[in-house]
Amino acid sequence: MAQLSSGAALILRHIDYGEADRIVTFLTPEQGLMKGFARAARKSRKRFGASLEPFSRVNLSWSEGRGALCSLRDAELIDARTALRADLRCFALACYGVELTEIVLHDASSQPEIYLLLNAYLDHLVTATDTETARLLFEVRLVQLLGYIPHLLHCSDCFGPLGTDLVVFDVSRGGSLCDLCSGGHPPLRVQAGTLGSLARSLRTPVDRFAGFRFGETTLSEGRHLIDSVLALTLSHQPKSLDLIDKIRLPPGP
């Protein structure tokens, strides 16, 4: 008989398969990113109910399946995060967080900190008023957990101190650059204060979002900075960015 496993999980997405089945992508703290086959999930409300909806935190039971898919046995819903459906921007940002996580994690390996980060991000979006700060915080921490965080507070070339005003940032050269090392045409200039704010946010626990509020400059420069890091890191651009951009525009026919 196939060995049964169970534990906490975050549902990232599902796709319908066949008459009434679903293939579910989920994140667990101990086994990382996994995919499971939920037989008759669309028809039977008994075993899965609404538990397999994206963003849900659940207790899942599964056994080894055929190939790369495990076989989902049942799910107990802990938090459906239904409030994310009541705000389009929060919904789009939750989709983005889930998609980003899925892109950067390729296999089933232990990812307890990334699990903590995504869980806290989704929790925070439910009540967040400053969603831009939440997004930037999530991205910077994710990049750090993956080991791709660029040098922020010292020169990535000579490891010397940076200037006190505008700092050259070139992700292809490892991050911040001092005046001596920068040379040529700098791709991006950011305030030293922005780098300081981002670096400070990385010293706090990954699951702490409440109480953070980046200023306008940090948000704007931090966005350019993290976008350049993600462009270099990700295999492809997240699709959910399209909706985030669209709902910034005023609605119209």
Binding site: E53, L84, R85, D87, I247
Partner: peptide, 15 residues
């Protein structure tokens, strides 16, 4: 009444 269905209803209500 899925996450996507609810988001679509929300988007349409805004329009």
């Amino acid at each position: 009444f899925t996450v996507e269905g609810e988001a679509t209803a929300l988007y349409l209500s805004g329009l």
